[in-house]
């Protein structure tokens, strides 16, 4: 952004080198390398059980690692597949969770406003729909002003229409806050719509990457991605 080319170190929100993570004898992440630039939106695809969540948890500092190095500036914010709202706290208190400065309520109110729930500050989480709850979870993450936002299938349990609305909302929020994003998803279209760069994970490492803007036609990315994920051209129902 500031200096074209040259030393990129300070412009990266994630630098992972030679990462190893195992459960007992089972090695899940094996010599994994990953870099995410400031403000870059990266999507991570890969078949179920390949270790996407494991990678995200390690980046979030929830699990320890058995080898390699991870550099992230400050702590990343996380949105999980479930909203993980505290049922005993109202929405603004949920969103302000972990805000240590003053004016927490003001900030929480602004964040809820941004996700379209500005009129429900004092409501309980149980009165929310799935999509609304997930919006609160996103507000809670963004109010931390993270340099890195980790999303683990945040829209997986939403219906298709709500998901499309959430994509729009997420894009506008990202444009406003400019965090680097790592999104884990199973939805190839979601990855194409949202991400600048799409990574394919297999055998504990990142095996391929696609820069979306390199493609003039998004349908070609889609075809390439399906192939990379193990569908031969004709197999895809799309």
């Amino acid at each position: 952004m500031e200096t074209p080319g040259g030393e990129q170190e300070t412009l990266e929100v994630v630098v992972v080198q030679g990462l190893v993570r195992s459960y007992g004898p089972k090695v899940i992440l094996n010599n994994l390398h990953l870099r995410i630039r400031k403000g870059e939106f990266v999507a991570l695809l890969g078949e179920s059980g390949c270790g996407k969540t494991t990678l995200l948890r390690v980046l979030a500092g929830l699990d320890s690692i058995q080898g390699g190095t991870i550099h992230t500036p400050g702590a990343p914010a996380v949105v999980f597949q479930e909203h993980r709202l505290l049922p005993w706290e109202n929405l603004w208190r949920n969103v302000s969770l972990g805000l240590h400065c003053g004016r927490a309520k003001e900030k929480a109110a602004k964040a809820l406003e941004e996700v379209g729930l500005g009129d429900r500050l004092d409501d309980w989480p149980r009165n929310l729909s799935g999509g609304q709850a997930q919006r609160v979870a996103i507000a809670r993450a963004l109010v931390q002003e993270p340099k890195l936002l980790l999303l683990d299938e945040p829209f997986a349990s939403l219906d298709a229409l709500t998901r499309i609305k959430m994509h729009k909302l997420l894009l506008s929020l990202i444009a406003a806050h400019k965090p680097g994003v790592l999104l884990v998803t199973h939805d190839v279209l979601e990855a194409i719509v949202l991400a600048d760069r799409i990574l394919i994970m297999r055998d504990g490492g990142i095996v391929k990457e696609y820069v979306v803007k390199d493609y003039a036609d998004k349908r070609t990315v889609q075809a390439d991605l399906f192939e990379a994920l193990g569908f031969a051209g004709g197999d895809s129902p799309y």
């Binding site: 979030a60 500092g61 929830l62 702590a75 990343p76 914010a77 996380v78 999980f80 479930e82 993980r84 505290l86 969770l97 972990g98 809670r140 931390q144």
Partner: peptide, 9 residues
């Protein structure tokens, strides 16, 4: 899971 959320916040 809530405790995990607390630690990520």
């Amino acid at each position: 899971k809530l405790l995990e959320m607390g630690s990520t916040q």
